[in-house]
């Protein structure tokens, strides 16, 4: 076997390189100009170094987002890997920011970097947390809204990993439907 002085100090590689983005709402600037790439990482250790270094989601100002996406995919509908896709959306009640938001977002991150969706992990583009006064949201974005086997598998695993009650129903919405909606309601393409 391999023997080296660095044994035990080697970092654990991830399947994918991931990019962490930060969005800060400034109404005086274009949406795209409020989106900032913070950093990229591709090992378990570098993930934790980053996670420990940044603010918890619950400490962000309202209007801010974190987005963790695979390297090369921008966290916007327009990206070619997103435009035919959609998102599993978990909407939190206001009071859950203090009790649940950080735990649920960390669990979402662990699903992504650990490739929790097995053979369907290929379909995952990234995840977003929106910190909002009216209620925070966490979503996993996938690349093909018509891929029902992948989308429903990802949804079931996501709901299970978040520890949501079987009574809670979460919905998957196609970005194309969200982008063209005429009111704040977007129909669910799938639910789990």
């Amino acid at each position: 076997g391999k023997l080296s002085l660095g044994e035990g100090l080697e970092k654990h590689p991830l399947e994918n390189r991931w990019a962490l983005w930060f969005f800060k709402n400034d109404r005086n600037r274009a949406w795209r100009d409020n989106l900032h790439l913070l950093t990229k990482f591709d090992t378990v250790e570098d993930f934790w170094a980053l996670y420990s270094h940044i603010q918890l989601a619950s400490k962000l100002s309202s209007g801010c987002d974190y987005a963790l996406f695979k390297d090369g995919i921008e966290p916007m509908w327009e990206d070619c890997r997103n435009k035919h896709g959609g998102r599993w959306l978990v909407s939190l009640a206001k009071q859950q920011r203090q009790s649940n938001l950080d735990r649920l977002w960390l669990e979402t991150l662990l699903c992504l970097v650990g490739e929790a969706f097995e053979e369907y992990s290929e379909e995952v583009c990234g995840a977003v947390v929106n910190v909002r006064t009216k209620g925070d949201k966490i979503a996993i974005w996938t690349s093909e809204a018509e891929n029902q086997p992948a989308v429903t598998f990802i949804g079931r695993v996501f709901k299970d990993r978040l520890g949501l009650s079987p009574k809670v129903v979460i919905g998957y919405q196609a970005h194309a439907d969200t982008a063209t909606k005429s009111n704040s309601f977007t129909k669910n393409k799938f639910v789990v």
């Binding site: 654990h12 378990v44 993930f47 934790w48 420990s52 669990e107 490739e115 992990s121 990993r161």
Partner: peptide, 18 residues
């Protein structure tokens, strides 16, 4: 090919290792 999968227990242990 093979996919590198880590379960949550392993990932959390890595957080706490020096």
């Amino acid at each position: 090919g093979t996919r590198i999968i880590y379960d949550r227990k392993f990932l959390l242990e890595c957080k706490n290792s020096p």
